[in-house]
Amino acid sequence: MNVHELSMRFLQIRNYNHETVNELLDFTKKAYIQDDICINVYRQLVRELEAQGAEVPESF
């Protein structure tokens, strides 16, 4: 799976287009936690999304 396929899956499941790459990052994390994607796919997607500017929010 690549970021384009992830984006299409996001649209299919959420019924709207993502506005930021951070939304896709959150969606990827949720998919991994729910065992929808394996660790290798998760790591690949996170690397691609971070390269596009996605970042984890800072903790308080």
Rank of each mutant, 00 (worst) to 15 (best):
R14G: 04
L24G: 00
H18A: 13
Y32I: 02
L11T: 08
H18G: 03
V46S: 01
V46Y: 00
E58F: 06
R14N: 08
L49C: 04
E19C: 10
I37W: 01
Y42Q: 02
S59H: 11
R47W: 06
V41E: 10
I33L: 06
K30W: 06
E55A: 14
V56L: 13
Q12W: 12
N22L: 12
D26Q: 12
D26V: 03
Q34Y: 04
Y32P: 07
R47T: 10
C38H: 05
A54T: 02
D36P: 00
I39F: 04
N40C: 08
L11N: 14
T28R: 02
Q44K: 11
N22V: 05
Y42E: 02
E55W: 13
E48D: 09
C38Q: 08
L45K: 09
K29Q: 09
V21H: 05
A31T: 03
C38F: 07
E55T: 15
L25P: 00
M8S: 15
F27I: 08
T20L: 13
I37N: 01
Y16D: 06
L45M: 04
E5P: 09
L6V: 07
Y16V: 10
E23R: 09
L24W: 11
H18I: 04
H4Y: 15
A51L: 10
Y32W: 09
M1G: 15
V56E: 07
E23C: 12
N2Q: 11
E48V: 14
T28A: 03
T20A: 14
Y16P: 02
M8Y: 15
C38T: 09
G53V: 03
E58T: 14
Q34S: 14
Y32E: 02
M1S: 13
E58M: 12
H4Q: 15
M8G: 09
A54R: 11
S59F: 09
D36H: 06
E55P: 04
L49S: 02
E55I: 15
L49F: 01
F60Q: 06
V41Y: 02
L6I: 05
S59D: 11
E23F: 06
M1K: 01
L49R: 01
N15R: 14
L11Y: 13
I37S: 01
E23W: 08
V3H: 01
I33Y: 02
C38M: 08
